[in-house]
Amino acid sequence: MIHAVLIFNTSGVPRLTKFYTPLRAESQPLLQKIFQLVSTRPASLCNFLDAPELQNLLGSKIGDEVRVVYRNYATLYFVFVVDGAESELGILDLIQVFVECLDRSFENVCELDLVFHFDDVHHILAQVIQGGLVLETNVDVIAQAVDEASLARKTSFLSANPLALGTGSGPRSSTLQTPLNWLTGKLGGIGAR
């Protein structure tokens, strides 16, 4: 089973953390540790992180066969913590599937999409994995489900806030959002980049 899905950037800032096994107390140290181990690995190495340190950290919770499977896309690391019931190469494919789904729904996904659409990323992940088990691996099926749910959230939001000017997919704007706010936000976003 998949025990955790983590996304963090190249400076170790988490962009998404999802724990399917209660590891909450250890979540931050775990994140730091994995980041520290993963970020020092050159791209030429394999995508499996097999560190004795992690075994010490996770062994008691997960068992003997802790595997960390990760992939690096531009500025982001996608890290899956799995146990012996998963196929390592399969998980590698699954990361690819997940990223493709993100790409479809954000159109050329970049780190900022993940930052500002934190909830959407979670909703997409929920279409791929449920409770640590793989729900679907077909990108088309996932994308369809994602669209469906996002449309439903939008409709629900609009019906609750008929005067809202906010756009975008989902309920992330409050009642008082104005285009001005949206504009400054964009500027801030670019400036910060």
């Binding site: 190249t10 170790g12 730091q32 020092t40 690995r41 050159p42 560190a51 010490n56 500025t75």
Partner: peptide, 27 residues
């Protein structure tokens, strides 16, 4: 950790083996 934090994505590919060499980790 500091080495890790210091190395950005750009120079990571250039890091010499001696720095990343797993032989140096206590674990």
């Amino acid at each position: 950790l500091t080495t890790a934090a210091a190395s950005t994505s750009a120079d990571r590919s250039l890091t010499t083996p001696s720095v990343v060499s797993p032989s140096s980790s206590t674990a």
